[in-house]
Amino acid sequence: MEAAKRFARGGYDVIIDGIVGPWFLDPWIKVLQDNYEVHYIILRATKEETMNRAINRSKLDDNINIELVEKMWGQFNNLGIYESNIIDTTDQSTEQSVSTIKAVIEKKSSLLTI
Results as ranks from 00 to 15, higher is better:
43 L>K: 08
73 W>M: 14
90 T>N: 01
22 P>V: 06
24 F>D: 15
95 E>H: 00
32 L>K: 00
101 I>L: 07
65 N>E: 09
12 Y>G: 08
114 I>P: 15
69 V>D: 09
69 V>P: 01
100 T>W: 02
111 L>H: 00
29 I>S: 11
53 R>K: 02
110 S>E: 01
15 I>T: 15
10 G>L: 13
23 W>G: 12
4 A>E: 10
26 D>Q: 12
66 I>S: 09
11 G>Q: 01
3 A>S: 11
35 N>H: 12
7 F>D: 06
58 S>L: 13
27 P>E: 06
23 W>L: 08
8 A>L: 09
61 D>C: 11
66 I>D: 07
61 D>L: 05
11 G>N: 10
94 T>P: 13
39 H>P: 07
102 K>T: 10
22 P>L: 08
95 E>C: 03
82 Y>H: 10
71 K>V: 07
17 D>W: 05
7 F>Y: 15
4 A>M: 15
85 N>E: 05
94 T>S: 06
22 P>Q: 07
6 R>I: 10
60 L>Y: 12
41 I>V: 10
39 H>A: 06
62 D>A: 15
39 H>K: 05
46 T>G: 04
61 D>H: 09
62 D>S: 14
59 K>R: 14
38 V>D: 05
27 P>H: 03
42 I>E: 05
62 D>C: 03
50 T>C: 07
109 S>N: 11
36 Y>D: 04
41 I>F: 05
26 D>R: 11
87 I>H: 04
88 D>F: 00
107 K>R: 13
67 E>A: 15
16 I>P: 05
28 W>G: 10
26 D>K: 11
54 A>F: 03
84 S>K: 14
74 G>A: 01
3 A>M: 11
83 E>A: 08
13 D>P: 07
17 D>F: 06
91 D>A: 09
106 E>R: 14
40 Y>C: 00
18 G>T: 09
83 E>C: 06
74 G>H: 01
55 I>S: 06
36 Y>P: 00
54 A>H: 03
83 E>V: 03
40 Y>K: 04
100 T>E: 15
88 D>L: 08
33 Q>T: 05
78 N>W: 00
26 D>A: 13
69 V>R: 01
70 E>D: 13
47 K>V: 00
79 L>Q: 01
38 V>S: 04
76 F>H: 01
81 I>G: 15
18 G>K: 01
46 T>A: 07
64 I>V: 14
110 S>V: 11
56 N>D: 11
105 I>R: 10
111 L>M: 05
76 F>T: 00
20 V>H: 12
56 N>H: 07
88 D>R: 08
62 D>V: 14
75 Q>M: 14
72 M>K: 13
